[in-house]
């Protein structure tokens, strides 16, 4: 594929709406991520680094 084709494709590509599966992927990733980060932060708080 030529450089011009790619530029044209990037400029003129039709919008693909977010599918439910993509929304699920984003939502679950963020949800699990935030829960894990809070859990790790608590662990970090209660099990401080040893020197």
């Amino acid at each position: 594929m030529s450089e011009t084709d790619i530029r044209k494709e990037l400029r003129d590509a039709p919008v693909e709406p977010l599918l439910p599966i993509e929304k699920k992927l984003i939502g679950w990733s963020l949800g699990i991520g935030l829960v894990l980060l809070v859990g790790l932060a608590l662990l970090n708080h209660f099990v401080p680094a040893t020197f």
Binding site: L25, I26, G27, S29, L30, I32, G33, L34, L36, L37, L40, A41, L43, N44, V47, P48, A49, T50
Partner: peptide, 19 residues
């Protein structure tokens, strides 16, 4: 202790940043 804290980076990169 540092290794344990490194786990947070994995969560952040894959689950927060990516989404």
């Amino acid at each position: 202790s540092l290794l344990l804290r490194g786990v947070a980076a994995i969560v952040e990169a894959y689950l927060i940043y990516w989404a």
